[in-house]
Computed example of a mutant assay.
Amino acid sequence: MCTKELLLLLFACCVWSAESQGAGRRQNIWAEPIKFSTKSKDSCTMVVTGHGEHTRLRLSCQSNKRSYWCEYLGKPNTCRSYSKDPRHYFVQMMWDFRKLHNACLAPKQIKPRMCRRATDESQMVFSSASFSRQWPEASTRTAGVRPAQPSRSQPRPTTPVSTRHPAIPRFPTRVQTQRRPVPQPTAPTVESNPKRIARLYCWRSLHGVCSYVIGLFRN
């Protein structure tokens, strides 16, 4: 019996030591703030408080010209990856904050990449800030405004059908070629009797003289 009791006592001590170490590690995680600088050289600090139902993240930034703060609430413990390494969850948020000129101008809901497959319940949601912020409405239904329905397109006026008969296409008329008049054969010139007689009875060199003489006699 003493051996069993000793073993049970030893086992209980080990469990208590492991739990105390885990709690101490978690307290160290929450106690050590995450520090970074924004794109505009603002020095910022992330402080995480709470665990379980509501985890609160307070982001405080300051520089020579300004100072501001904002808070996020969520249930990151619903993500399995968060339970393994909770600090890395907020470190991934810090990587997104440092890319901004104003760290509190981050999106309203933030879900780190390590929990992208988890439900939206594991994301951190913006709750308050040192300045007012306006968020675009997700949809018109959430605002109680019914989306305007597109008006039915009115039928286009139909062009009246003309009662006239369709115009018959005119084919190009053939160009009538004018025929050139065929030259009529000219009647052979009738020679006068004196020239004919002179041609028949006189030498060729004397045709003119003979025809003149013969003409005188005929007249």
Rank of each mutant, 00 (worst) to 15 (best):
S130C: 05
A118G: 08
A143H: 08
S130T: 10
F97N: 00
K108W: 08
F131C: 02
R180H: 08
R164V: 12
H165E: 13
L105H: 11
Q123A: 15
R156P: 04
R179T: 09
M114Y: 02
A129G: 14
F97P: 00
V91Y: 09
M93T: 00
W95R: 11
A148V: 10
R141N: 07
A148Q: 07
K111Q: 15
Q134G: 10
E137M: 11
S127Q: 10
T163W: 09
R113T: 07
F97D: 00
F126C: 03
R180D: 11
P172S: 07
P150M: 07
R180C: 09
P157K: 05
L105P: 00
P155C: 04
V175F: 11
F131V: 10
R164S: 09
F126H: 03
A106N: 04
R174P: 10
R87I: 00
R152E: 04
T177P: 05
T140C: 04
I110G: 00
M114W: 03
D120K: 04
T159Q: 13
W135S: 01
A103G: 02
H165K: 11
A129E: 02
S130E: 07
R133H: 06
H88N: 08
V161E: 15
R164P: 05
R141W: 09
S128T: 12
R179A: 11
R113Y: 15
S127R: 14
P166D: 13
R146E: 15
F126Q: 03
T163I: 14
A148D: 13
R179C: 06
D120W: 13
Q176E: 15
C104D: 00
K108V: 12
P107N: 05
D120C: 04
V125T: 12
F97T: 02
E137L: 09
R98K: 14
F90E: 01
K99I: 02
V91P: 01
R174K: 08
S162L: 15
A138L: 06
R113G: 05
F131T: 14
M93K: 00
E121R: 03
A138F: 14
A167M: 12
P155R: 08
D96R: 14
R113F: 14
F97M: 02
R116F: 15
S153E: 08
S151M: 12
F171L: 13
W135E: 07
K108M: 10
T173F: 09
V91L: 10
V125G: 00
R116C: 09
S153L: 09
R164D: 13
R113D: 13
Q109Y: 09
A148P: 10
M93N: 01
L105Q: 13
E121T: 06
P172Y: 07
M94T: 10
Q149L: 09
M124Q: 00
P166T: 08
P150H: 11
A148N: 12
A143S: 14
D120Q: 10
W95T: 09
A103E: 03
R133A: 06
R133G: 05
M93V: 00
K108H: 09
L100W: 00
W135D: 03
M114F: 04
S128D: 03
V125Q: 06
